[in-house]
Design a protein around this nucleic acid. Structure first.
Lengths: 344, 344
DNA sequence: GTGAAAGCGCTAACAG
DNA sequence: CTGTTAGCGCTTTCAC
């Protein structure tokens, strides 16, 4: 592996000039820059990140923390962030932060280690924190990490964040059903163990209730079932909803696309036709939505990852400390799972 | 951020001793070690990865390269690798390598940049390459990367790799159907564009054909349809298979669980009962398999990630250069989607 | 626009 | 078992 010195030698300049030229600084004459670039290419020189980081204090590496890398939403955000970072020449170091909800002592230890060790060894210039709800203690420890942090999915005290207006999203989904004439609209929400997630389940439920109330319908607790955001959970919840003679809904609004797909499958298994007998709408913009003909509110997760990256990279240059949260885009995608209420 | 010198001062020893004590080297007296650890804790000292890397040549960071982070299999492998790495105190830097199949010039550029720049700046001690089929040119460039590489999913010239015996896995799945009395067994394979993946589609198809042949059945091209490993693709292929009067299968073996789930959905939509009218088996061990009652051959992707990590970490210490490929475990999971052939 | 030189914070011989 | 001393390879003043 050639060093900067060899490049300097070949180009006939000092190492300082090589450093400047390769970093794209303006204070290098075009001719010199060319010679340096040629020399570097000829030698196959690539800057050593360790040496560069040590000398400059910048790693050109960004950390991404998320609760899991296995659920649909997170993988999309990750893909979006990775793409954007790679295009900017940055590396991406991934941290999966186990939830401590289960009370698993190993998970607690892993989580502690992230804050006490991984985060502090200066491997990253900044952090993108996805759906990360921290304890007070963790928040305190996060303060030792001096670099910029951008949050996705909820407010992170002291950091900029991207937030989806869950209330409005839910209202939109519900109003879509209302506009089709539905009055008996059930809701599959996230169960409260997911409420660590910035009360996302709660907000989505509130949006639903607000829309109903605004339409003169009194929200009914019987019409709401909670699940775990998976297809399977949505399936089970729908079985409950459709099986209970007191509920008898003409439409279901699920707080995620996967749950909505579960609802579609459950409806089929019970012999209900979608949307003739039952309209179903979700939230997310899942790939499979098209296959299932699912009407949904798309929240463009990849864009969220890209946006977070842009914000962070911007902060890394300018260290502007504008902490105003950024509202994330969303869009109603109408497909075949919703229709006008049957006039029977 | 405290430096090693401050810790040394507080503990009343030299920086060398601090370094040794914190690195867990044996040549430090217990008493000294204790004092150093106390001092480090008191100061909140964490080693700077850049300085440590520069001085030692080891980054304590491992790269993971995969074609995508959005398909089920890859996310599981990633999760497994991350867990194992984190427990060993290593960071994980993720690289998504765009496929160049589409001929997208941007993808080509990104891919080139990975080999020419990202890989060579010494940010990682080693690499875990998942389902990475390289061009000769890329293979050549990979040689500039002097560190150990462990491959998952196929042979990587010059590196150790973990391989699933796709032939045997497919044979097992097919034999399971044969043992239930099925003779008209259709196959949904991966289309050949996925054959870059170490000919995985081809191997799985060959295992299927071998099993049939061994049972005295002549493989019939009409019984085979190709898809893209997704639920949707499996659904479409099944529609073709079940719609063609010349095919008329009593069982389908799909080369992935997602395609198998698509097959289950398609069968339902066509009014066929699973398994009464049609048995279906997949490969993978997908979470949703349980929900769909899908019989499958589990390939334990998380274990693959963990195993690859262990192998790599081992190589990092011992630099043993045993390049013998490691066979990955797999297991037939019988659920409700397969049954004895109806005796009508 | 370019060069000389002083570190960045740590590790790894080498002594003792 | 512990300290001294060179660097690791780069960036960044500070001069010129």
């Amino acid at each position: 592996m050639p060093t900067i010195e060899e490049v300097a030698g070949l180009a006939g300049v000092s190492t300082a000039t090589v450093s400047r030229a390769l970093a794209g600084k303006s204070s290098v004459s075009p001719a010199t820059r060319q010679r340096v670039e040629d020399a570097a290419k000829a030698l196959g020189y690539v800057v050593s990140s360790a040496a560069s980081s040590l000398a400059s204090g910048r790693t050109r590496n960004v950390g991404v923390v998320m609760p899991s890398v296995q659920s649909w939403f997170f993988t999309r955000v990750l893909a979006g962030a990775h793409r954007a970072l790679a295009d900017a020449g940055y590396d991406l170091t991934l941290y999966q932060l186990d939830s401590t909800l289960g009370g698993d002592p190993e998970a607690v230890a892993r989580r502690a280690r992230f804050f006490d060790e991984f985060l502090l060894r200066k491997r990253v210039d900044g952090l993108i924190a996805v759906s990360l709800e921290l304890t007070d203690d963790e928040l305190e420890r996060l303060r030792h990490f001096r670099n910029p942090v951008v949050g996705i999915g909820g407010p992170l005290p002291g950091s900029r964040s991207l937030m989806l207006d869950d209330l409005s999203v839910s209202r939109l989904a519900t109003e879509h059903l209302l506009s089709l004439g539905h009055r008996r609209i059930a809701h599959i929400g996230g169960d409260t163990s997911f409420d660590v997630d910035f009360h996302l389940p709660t907000h989505r439920r509130e949006g639903y209730e607000q829309a109903l109330t605004a339409a003169g319908i009194t929200p009914d607790a019987l019409m709401v079932r909670l699940a775990d955001f998976t297809i399977e959970g949505g399936y089970r919840a729908t079985l409950q909803l459709l099986g209970d003679p007191r509920v008898n809904p003409t439409a279901i609004f699920a707080a995620s696309d996967e749950m909505a797909m579960g609802a579609i499958l459950a409806a089929r298994d019970l012999g209900k036709r979608v949307p003739d007998d039952l309209s179903i709408v979700g939230i997310d913009g899942h790939e499979l939505g098209d296959f299932f003909g699912l009407t949904t509110v798309d929240q463009f997760p990849e864009t969220q990852g890209r946006l977070a990256t842009e914000l962070l990279l911007h902060e890394l240059d300018d260290d502007s400390d504008d902490l105003a949260p950024v509202a994330l885009p969303y869009e109603l995608m109408v497909r075949r799972s919703t229709s006008i209420i049957p006039t029977t």
